[in-house]
Design a protein around this nucleic acid. Structure first.
Length: 574
DNA sequence: AGTTTCATATGG
DNA sequence: CTCGCCATATGAAACT
């Protein structure tokens, strides 16, 4: 049984029961207190909520209510639109309803700016504004109608059973994302201060650079024998090196590392510290940490591959040295679990390559591959596998890839097929049916620095017809880049699904316990739990991983081992 | 002055 | 001729 929810904006809502087949049961019911109604229904047993989590759930969570399951109409709409070749079309309920009724489809509102915790008045509920609703639109009726239509569309996907699993996992993720943003990541300001002071020195009173950065800047200037050089300006640094007789083309660390000059290590250190100061320093904490919790805003499926993104706070790029600040509360622990070698194991599973699946049954898959096919050279085996998944073709990858192709033809063909499809302009899907976005005009040739600049220069030098020659080669490069994208999509998107399935199971397992999932980063999850309860959490995480594997792949020789650490500080994991 | 792109760092 | 995927965040530089 489902219950469709239409919030009214005053804390109340209109509800309607819906059968699993999408037909409404009984009539609409007005409740004055949605939070109380939801709490009551959850106690009553097996119920699934029909709503868009991002719009309804934050207010409920703030009111102290959580729910076990939902069908997220918006996240599902986005999945279906992608599957139907309408990637990026408006996903909001009003738009889905308009499509259903042949009305005018209004675009989704632009994503809100990242909202630091607590500095804005948070709305009670966020119903569709009356002026934005098309004539005849009723939130409750629309939810019911769109749900029924979605059921039919799901049945029409190439693999409906898998797609249903995807919808369930995505919806659970929608709930968890709200909960995690609300709960926040335990953050110890004292430790953070100690780390910052150790690295950066004393903070400047006026908000300028801390002492160590100022000293480093002076040391850099001294190394060049000048009075001052702005280390933040690539142009100035480049000029300084050239004046000193070093013909460098950029100030990137990888290029500077190759030259021998006293300023190089100083610059590298400066940039590292500067980034910590600006992106994760005192000002950052002031903005994002409240009452000992870092509150990023998670965006499920914010990445085209289905990975989550975050808005604000840089939650998915916390530098390793800063992780010491992530500390469990007194008497509590962090259970840090990460999936080891997830993507290559996913490749072994989806390609159903017997040899590779056998290797993926080992604790160290690269070592197992090396033993079987790479003369025991683990590093080469790793290069081959990563090259196959990312589309590398040159350098040391070439011979390694040839061996991979020879020894594991089915796995090789799987990613190769995805690449060919992409190069030809086609679409690929993940294991559960998430579809990649179509090629678009905004698709660039790639991100390597030489790409477009080199092509433009070739044209100017008159390599054949400057215009058509440049275009042809540009389009080939674009097609290749597209091939690398689709090649990687089938793996990365499926890995994201596995992680999402783990999360969904783990969330269910931990409900009703004090343990909370407080962080999720692609293939890694952190649970905050009372010290006495960590054994059960560790068991739950392992079971969730096994469950994810079973849900996606059924019986398979591929193993998905987890590295699990029970620690007081995130820095102590691994 | 405000906006967009580039360069460089971080994470997986 | 060359050829490694997905992101976010910052300040400088370039552009409108």
């Amino acid at each position: 049984m489902l219950i469709a929810v239409a919030p009214l904006g005053d804390g109340g809502a209109v509800l309607r029961r819906v059968g699993d087949d999408g037909t409404p049961v009984g009539s609409a019911e007005h409740v004055a207190d949605l939070a109380a109604a939801v709490r009551g229904a959850e106690r009553g047993g097996d119920v699934r909520w029909l709503w868009a989590s991002a719009e309804v759930y934050p207010a409920l969570v703030r009111a102290g209510v959580s729910v076990a399951r939902c069908h997220d109409l918006e996240l599902t709409e986005a999945l279906l639109l992608g599957s139907e070749g309408e990637w990026g079309a408006p996903r909001r309920l009003v738009a889905a309803w308009a499509r259903l009724n042949g009305g005018v489809v209004t675009p989704d509102p632009p994503a809100r700016q990242p909202a630091p915790p607590g500095d804005v008045q948070e709305a009670l509920f966020d119903p569709t504004p009356a002026d934005a609703a098309p004539p005849g639109f009723d939130t409750l009726d629309a939810a019911v109608a769109v749900y029924a239509a979605q059921l039919g569309r799901i049945a029409g996907t190439p693999m409906p059973g898998r797609f249903r699993l995807l919808v369930a996992a995505e919806s659970a993720g929608g709930l968890l994302a709200v909960e995690m943003g609300r709960d926040g990541l335990p953050w110890d300001a004292g430790t953070h201060d100690a780390v910052l002071t150790e690295l950066l020195g004393e903070p400047s009173r006026v908000g300028g650079p801390p002492s160590r950065l100022g000293e480093l800047a002076q040391e850099i200037a001294d190394a060049f024998g000048v009075a001052r050089v702005n280390a933040d300006s690539p142009a100035e640094v480049l000029k300084a090196f050239r004046r000193a007789g070093y013909p460098v083309n950029s100030t990137a660390a990888w290029e500077l590392r190759r030259i021998d000059h006293p300023a190089v290590p100083l610059l590298t250190r400066y940039k590292e510290l500067y980034r910590i100061w600006t992106a994760h320093g005192w000002a950052w904490r002031q903005q994002w940490v409240r009452d000992g919790r870092f509150h990023p805003e998670y965006v499920p499926a914010g990445v085209v591959s289905g990975r989550w993104a975050t808005r604000g706070g840089g939650a998915l790029q916390i530098p390793k040295v800063i992780r010491a600040s992530v500390r469990a509360d007194p008497g509590w622990r962090l259970v840090v679990a990460d999936a080891a070698q997830l993507e290559p194991r996913i490749l072994a599973a989806v390609a159903d390559d017997p040899g590779m699946a056998r290797a993926a049954g080992a604790g160290d898959m690269y070592a197992a591959l090396a033993a079987e096919a790479f003369h025991g050279d683990r590093a080469i085996a790793k290069v081959a596998l990563l090259g196959a998944m990312y589309g590398q073709v040159g350098g040391q990858a070439a011979p390694a890839l040839a061996r991979l192709r020879q020894s594991y033809p089915k796995a090789f063909a799987y990613v190769e097929d995805a690449a060919r499809t992409g190069e030809a302009g086609g679409l690929v899907r993940s294991w559960l049916g998430r579809t990649c976005p179509p090629p678009s005009a905004s698709w660039t040739e790639g991100t390597w620095t030489g790409g477009s600049a080199a092509a433009a220069q070739d044209g100017a030098e008159g390599w054949g017809d400057p215009e058509s020659g440049g275009n042809v080669r540009g389009s080939v490069a674009r097609s290749r880049a597209r091939g690398r994208f689709t090649r990687n999509f089938v793996i990365q998107a499926t890995a994201a699904e596995w992680a999402l399935a783990l999360l969904a199971t783990l969330r269910t397992r931990l409900s009703g316990t004090p343990a909370r999932i407080v962080f999720f980063q692609h293939d890694e999850v952190i649970v905050h739990a009372p010290r006495d309860g960590t054994d059960e959490v560790v068991a739950a995480v392992h079971e969730a991983a096994a469950s994810a594997s079973q849900l996606l792949f059924g019986q398979t020789p591929v193993r998905f081992p987890l590295g699990v650490a029970v620690v007081e500080s995130y820095a102590d994991a691994k």
